[in-house]
């Protein structure tokens, strides 16, 4: 099963997914959804890395994906702990309730 892929299509797919992630982060009010959208963006960039690695037949793209994965795991664990804490303290996950740090 030999596939032929054009680079720009994969990269554009990654870009599209990334843009969707951005939209998700901005338009959502609930922090959980924002965190999900961030995961989408991370995945999109991972896709771009893997595509680049595959284009040149090098392992570096996958290495970067592994790092992104580790980063995502760390980020999710902290993020979810924060979500739990925010929910306990504010009884809501509305990001607009967390505007205390304004200048």
């Amino acid at each position: 099963m030999k596939t032929t892929v054009s680079t720009e299509v994969v990269v554009l797919l990654a870009g599209l997914l990334f843009a969707l992630g951005i939209v998700g982060v901005i338009i959502r009010k609930n922090i959980i959804f924002m965190l999900l959208s961030v995961e989408i963006m991370l995945n999109a960039s991972g896709l771009a890395f893997v595509a680049a690695g595959s284009r040149w037949g090098q392992p570096d793209g996958q290495v970067m994906f592994v790092f992104i994965l580790a980063m995502a795991a760390a980020e999710v664990s902290i993020g979810l702990a924060l979500i739990l804490q925010i929910y306990h303290q504010h009884k809501s996950l509305d990001i607009d309730n967390l505007k205390e740090m304004n200048g």
Binding site: I22, I95, L98, E100, M101, N102, G103
Partner: peptide
């Protein structure tokens, strides 16, 4: 400038 520091994550993104 401190107006831009609204505390709203949405605006920062």
């Amino acid at each position: 400038l401190s107006r831009t520091q609204s505390g709203s994550l949405r605006w920062y993104i």
